[in-house]
């Protein structure tokens, strides 16, 4: 019984971190219909950057965080400016190719700057477990889940009510019409990549401080893709619901069938869901009026 509850809570909390990283995909899809295939690599590079700040340069934690966020903002800005902007208006395939290329570039770049391949961040959260009912839960997982939830709420409110957030959603619908409303689309795209990189960086710090920094982070990125597909591409709510589902599948799959099959389970779930709901759980349907 306590194992069951423990698995549930661990699964949900881990899934919340996947959800957070998945937001980095949804954010970009929401405003430009570009698939950000570099999710895991963005997490990887910002985790290594944090490692340099906190471990190699031994900056205090708060300063390290500020610098990491600044790094993520710069990274997002650069990516949009150098990789995506030259391709505005190009076919969707080129845009997919460019983010895939970006993924490999970031991975190679990371291996070049941080050749050690494995690193540990100082522990951010208290290490003691806490008792929830009959189950013992790692506290840091709960913290990570709470931070993910807060970011989800902030982003949702921004996109629902803020002038820029509304304009960003409008841009996804009609890039020409939005410019007729004097919305600077370059700034929209730039903002969406900056947001995505910041979210990836925060997710990276959370995961890496709990586990370790290594190429496993790229796989975490893949899991976040499954979250996105399950949740429905642009939906934040989809991320935050699908994340825990994937997390649960994983922990239960792991404890029931062993770890080799656990990685496959999320994908099986996705195939089934997509057959029933092609736009994911909360995805926007394509509007076709007759």
């Amino acid at each position: 019984m306590d194992i069951l509850i423990q698995n549930i809570i661990t699964g949900v909390a881990t899934g919340m971190v996947y959800a957070l990283i998945a937001l980095g995909f949804a954010l970009i899809w929401k405003s430009s219909r570009v698939a950000n295939l570099a999710l895991g690599q963005l997490v990887l590079i910002s985790s290594w950057f944090t490692y340099s700040m906190l471990v190699q340069f031994k900056f205090p934690f708060w300063l390290g965080m500020i610098l990491t966020i600044a790094f993520a903002i710069l990274l997002g800005w650069l990516i949009e400016r150098l990789a995506l902007r030259p391709l505005i208006g190009q076919p969707i395939l080129s845009l997919i190719a460019i983010t895939l290329g970006l993924a490999y570039f970031l991975e190679g770049f990371t291996a070049f700057i941080w050749p050690q391949g494995q690193g540990n961040l100082p522990k951010v959260f208290p290490q003691t477990s806490i008792q929830i009912g009959p189950a013992m839960i790692q506290q840091e997982l709960l913290w990570a889940a709470v931070i993910s939830l807060i970011l989800f709420i902030l982003l949702s409110v921004f996109f629902k009510y803020h002038r820029m957030g509304i304009a960003m959603r409008a841009t996804a619908d009609d890039q020409l019409a939005v410019q007729a409303c004097a919305v600077p689309v370059n700034r929209v795209f730039s903002m969406s990549w900056i947001f995505a990189c910041v979210v990836a960086a925060i997710g990276g710090v959370l995961i890496s401080s709990i586990a370790a920094i290594n190429y496993g982070l790229v796989e975490t990125g893949f899991k976040s893709f499954s979250v996105v597909i399950l949740g429905g591409m642009e939906s934040f709510l989809g991320c935050i619901v699908a994340g825990p589902i994937i997390g649960l599948c994983e922990t239960f799959g792991g404890s029931q069938f062993g770890s080799s099959i656990k990685e496959v389970i999320p994908f099986i779930i996705i195939v089934i869901v997509i057959m029933i709901k092609p736009f994911g759980l909360f995805g926007e349907e394509r509007i076709e009026r007759i």
């Binding site: 002038r163 304009a167 959603r169 409303c181």
Partner: peptide, 16 residues
């Protein structure tokens, strides 16, 4: 803007 509601469409008009 198809996926936005009517009021949000109007608000985008006032963006600047």
């Amino acid at each position: 803007f198809e996926h936005l509601n009517a009021e949000e469409n109007l608000l985008v008009g006032a963006f600047s």
